[in-house]
């Protein structure tokens, strides 16, 4: 693998607010060992490596890296970083660049059922990532109405919107549904009741 000289990813990241400190990283690995995503979700997740990829302009690798897409900006690493690099800022910058180049978030995001959404705005107010907005659009059988809309570039699949929704119109499209949870719960309750 040779260095990609035709990319200026590092410069682009540095130009985005949050990414300025990119070059200060001395690769101590504190962020990786602090990270919950790495611990709980994806062992291959590694902010230190992503920073490295950005520094050396490995654009394709960086945009394909799970680190780019799975960071939820919980900022556990930021107060731990000895170089005071706002790591989630750097990752968000890489993600912004990836989205701008047409890359899709490969992970699940919340999805709105437009047939039942009443545009009450509860989901918009609870979303920690301002990923949900009320927009006016044409919905089959309902005409031009206002419904909630999820920006897949911002959504982190926390499910807070699902818990808040009063009309069960917004949900995560995989893994975790109310019915599954309830069935599981009742399975235990009924077994225990016997």
């Amino acid at each position: 693998m040779s260095l990609p000289f035709n990319s200026n990813l590092a410069e682009q990241v540095k130009a985005i607010p949050g990414g300025e400190m990119l070059m200060m990283c001395f690769s101590c690995g504190t962020c990786t060992s602090k990270c919950m995503v790495q611990e709980k979700l994806e062992p291959n997740y590694n902010p230190r490596r992503l920073i490295r990829e950005a520094v050396f302009n490995f654009e394709e690798t960086a945009f394909a890296d799970e680190t780019t897409w799975l960071c939820t900006a919980c900022d556990l690493c930021y107060p731990a970083c000895p170089q005071k690099i706002h790591i989630s800022g750097v990752i968000t910058a890489v993600k912004q660049l990836a989205v701008a180049q047409g890359h899709q978030n490969p992970y699940q995001t919340a999805k709105v059922d437009e047939a039942t959404c009443v545009a009450c705005g509860l989901c918009e107010s609870v979303c920690p990532y301002t990923a949900i907005k009320l927009v006016e659009k044409k919905v089959p059988f309902r005409g031009m109405i206002t419904v909630a809309s999820v920006d897949p570039g911002k959504c982190m699949a926390c499910g807070m919107c699902t818990a808040a929704c009063r009309s069960t119109s917004i949900r995560l499209n995989q893994d975790f549904t109310d019915n599954e949870v309830l069935e599981n719960l009742w399975g235990w309750l009924e077994r225990e009741a016997v």
Binding site: V126, G159, F176, D178, L185, W186, E190
Partner: peptide, 20 residues
Amino acid sequence: TPCTGRINPLYVLNAVQGGA
């Protein structure tokens, strides 16, 4: 759950009604 924020009060209600 993905987050405590994902815990629907419905789950708690079901647990209570189910005898937890």
